[in-house]
């Protein structure tokens, strides 16, 4: 199996990150925003993997595992917030309706 060249891996990571960022900025649906965050995290993780592959270092893969755990907790917390919103009588997935913190 030929390894993905680092340059290509970085390019892929940039594309993934931009997709995720665009998703966060454009979509108003909370579920899609959570998914976009996951995509961005995966982009970061991909950079770690690529770097680890390039320098033959296992640290990159360790960092990937940590990011995986982080993504899982983040998704869990995000979904829990959405469920709590439902439980408190705000059955909306629109992120822009929750702007109580406006200045």
């Amino acid at each position: 199996m030929t390894a993905l060249p680092p340059g290509d891996a970085l390019l892929l990571a940039v594309i993934l990150f931009s997709t995720g960022l665009a998703g966060i900025l454009i979509r108003r649906n909370l579920l899609f925003m959570l998914m976009s965050i996951d995509i961005m995290l995966n982009a970061a993780a991909l950079v770690f993997i690529a770097a680890g592959a390039k320098w033959h270092d296992a640290t990159g893969q360790v960092m990937f595992l940590m990011i995986l755990a982080l993504a899982a907790t983040e998704t869990a917390a995000g979904l829990a917030i959405i469920l709590r919103l439902h439980a408190r009588g705000r059955p909306s997935l629109d992120a822009d309706t929750g702007n109580l913190l406006r200045g």
Binding site: I24, L25, M33, A95, D96, N99, L101, R102, G103
Partner: peptide
């Protein structure tokens, strides 16, 4: 001006961060 930035919308904050 600064108050207008604090509009409570998560996406705007994300945009500012970006």
């Amino acid at each position: 001006l600064l108050g207008r930035m604090q509009n409570g919308r998560v996406r705007w904050y994300a945009a500012w961060i970006a």
